[in-house]
Every structure is written in structure tokens, then in C-alpha cells.
């Protein structure tokens, strides 16, 4: 009977184009829910010209393959994280630096502004729908509270990719492992901490196995995410549909940024409810951390120079916007 049910289930296909959307965020995660609502919005505002089949949680294309999957047409639209394909996005990597990320809203806005200003060739083989970036990435530890760099010495901290350089620069020992293993590793004490945004305390349940959050906003990093579409599929759409989607993208970029901050609050609430504590670091100490992290920024500039990409300009631009933000003067159509 199930089979017959499937056979007779109506499929609205009248004339329009059917697209697939692969997201690495698991279904239920707010970032996945938003992407799915983007699909619904596109269907509504293109008057049925575009219909989208949505696949969350790596089910159609795996996280590290999503950008490539959009280029090759395995999926028509995709959302994933820039960190998974290191070296592929040399300029856009700027957002993953510990630049002192104040919020997901700011990081998302400035990330889109960086893209618009520099139009990097690294993203030229797809149609970029919009970008977003998570809130302040912080160190979280177990048993031992960290208030200074000296406390970090010798601690094993789980970190991915380029973030490992930051951990090393601060004097801790970076340990790499796949995300699904981190919970167990913290529980067993294989690592004494991990670095991630507050959101992850609830999203991946890390709040259950950590004790302290080290709230060092001046050295907080972000991780950038992209929503991109296959160029041929994009060009095949009608002008009206493309205009409608562009308008939606602007709205949704803002929604994603706001959602990152809401998730961070929820993560903090979850973490505190588990009896964990959050400690800030004082300004003198923060200055020491910033000084220690200089090589991380130098490394970025050096790498982009090697690839003939204006990394230094992008970093300067980012820092200028951050300064404007702290003076209350930051302006962006994504903000």
C-alpha cells in the first residue's frame, strides 16, 4: 500500500524547473530550517517557476563536496562551510581569522560586503546566492578555568583547519578530530577543551561535557558559510525569477546572521543551565592575546600574496568595518 501511495502521490511539475538543494547543516538546525524556508519563499515568489527539493544533513552531497557538487551539477544549489575545502577560497578565508568577531550579525554583513567589494575569482564558477558567518568563536574548557595565556599552556584543545594555528599561537596544543568524536573525547578527557561558537554548546550538546567558556571577544574568530547555485541552472532562469531570488537572498542573509546570534544566546542559556560558567578576560590580557595572534594574520597575508590575491586589502577592509562597528557607525545593506 505504501508503494501505491507513492505511485499516486501528486507531483506538481507544471512547466517549471525542478532544482535540488544540498545543505550540510542537519535538518532541525536553525540554519537548515532557514535554508528550507528560503526554498519555500523562492517557490512562492517565482510564481511556481522554480521548485526545489531540499536535502539536509549531507544526505545528497557531503559537506566538503558541496561547492564542487554545485559546480559539477550533482546538486543545483548548496550550502556549506568554507573551512572544509582549505586553499580553495584563499581570499574569503579572511572571515575565519581571529579578528575579534563581535556577533554573527556583523560577521555575516561584513562577509557579504567583502564579497561584493572584491568579487573574488575563487567563487566565480558558481552564482553566489548569499554568504553568512557564525558568531564569536571561543575556547571552552573542562575542569580548568582559563583567565590568561599561561592557563592555556599545555591544554589540548580540539580545533579544525586554520583555527589550529590560532590555538598554537596562544600556547595550547591543537588536536584535530572529526566533529562527531568531540563529545566523547571531551567526556573521556582526550582533549581538555575545544574551540567553537556558543551555539555549539546546545547544537552538538558540548555544554554537557565542558565546564567553562573563555569569553575573549577581542580574539574571537568566525567561520564563513556560502549558499551557491550552479551557473548554468541560474542562467536558464527567467529574468523575473532571478530578480525575485536576488531580492530574497538579501533578506535571507540578514536572517541567517540574526539566527546565529539567537543560537548563541540559546547555547549560552543551555550551557549555564548545565552549571557551566563564563569568564571574560581583562583588557591587558586581551592585548597580550592579540599580540600573540599576529603570526596568524601574517600567515594569511603571506598565503594570499603567493596566490596573487589581495588578502591584505581584504583584511584592512574588515578591520576598518570592525572599527566603524565599535564606534557605532557600521553601515551595510546586510545589517
Amino acid at each position: 500500500f505504501l508503494l501505491s501511495g507513492l505511485v499516486f502521490s501528486e507531483n506538481v511539475q507544471a512547466g517549471g524547473v525542478n532544482l535540488t538543494y544540498s545543505n550540510f547543516f542537519p535538518p532541525g538546525h536553525i540554519q537548515s530550517v532557514l535554508a528550507e524556508s528560503w526554498c519555500k519563499e523562492v517557490e512562492a515568489r517565482t510564481n511556481g517557476e522554480v521548485k526545489i527539493s531540499y536535502f539536509g544533513g549531507n544526505t545528497l552531497v557531503k559537506a566538503a563536496q558541496i561547492y564542487d557538487g554545485v559546480v559539477t551539477g550533482r546538486t543545483d544549489i548548496g550550502m556549506s562551510c568554507l573551512l572544509y575545502t582549505r586553499g580553495r577560497f584563499p581570499l574569503m578565508d579572511v572571515i575565519n581569522l581571529p579578528f575579534g568577531n563581535p556577533s554573527g550579525k556583523f560577521a555575516t554583513a561584513v562577509f557579504n560586503e567583502v564579497y561584493n567589494k572584491f568579487q573574488p575569482t575563487e567563487l566565480a564558477d558558481t552564482k553566489v546566492l548569499y554568504l553568512h558567518a557564525h558568531g564569536p568563536g571561543l575556547i571552552h574548557t573542562q575542569k580548568k578555568n582559563v583567565t590568561s595565556m599561561a592557563d592555556l599552556k599545555g591544554l589540548k584543545i580540539r580545533s579544525t583547519g586554520s583555527i589550529a594555528g590560532m590555538i598554537k599561537a596562544l600556547g595550547a596544543i591543537p588536536v584535530s578530530m572529526p566533529m562527531p568524536e568531540v563529545y566523547q573525547a571531551l567526556q573521556k578527557g582526550v582533549v581538555q577543551g575545544a574551540i567553537y561558537p556558543e551555539e555549539t554548546n546546545k547544537g552538538w550538546k558540548m555544554g554537557e561535557v565542558i565546564d567553562y567558556s573563555v569569553v575573549s571577544y577581542p580574539t574571537a574568530y568566525s567561520v564563513g558559510f556560502f549558499a551557491v547555485m550552479n551557473k548554468d541552472k541560474w542562467n536558464a532562469l527567467s529574468q523575473e525569477a532571478r530578480d525575485a531570488i536576488d531580492a530574497i537572498n538579501m533578506e535571507w542573509a540578514i536572517k541567517h546572521g540574526d539566527a546565529w546570534d539567537t543560537s548563541d544566546y540559546e547555547g549560552i542559556r543551555f550551557s549555564l543551565a548545565q552549571g557551566n560558567s563564563m569568564t571574560g578576560i581583562d583588557p591587558d590580557e586581551a592585548a597580550k592575546w592579540k599580540a600573540a595572534l599576529e603570526p596568524v594574520f601574517d600567515d594569511y597575508i603571506e598565503k594570499t600574496e603567493k596566490r596573487a590575491v589581495p588578502g591584505k586589502d581584504a583584511l584592512d577592509f574588515l578591520n576598518k568595518q570592525l572599527k566603524l562597528y565599535h564606534n557605532g557607525e557600521f553601515q551595510s545593506q546586510y545589517y
Partner: peptide, 14 residues
Amino acid sequence: GDLKRIGQVTAVLE
């Protein structure tokens, strides 16, 4: 060939 052109490397050790 694509990966060589793009310059993609592993996440930690590059």
C-alpha cells in the same frame, strides 16, 4: 587536475 588548479589542500597540514 581541478584540485591542483584550485589549490585545495587538507585542513590542518595543508
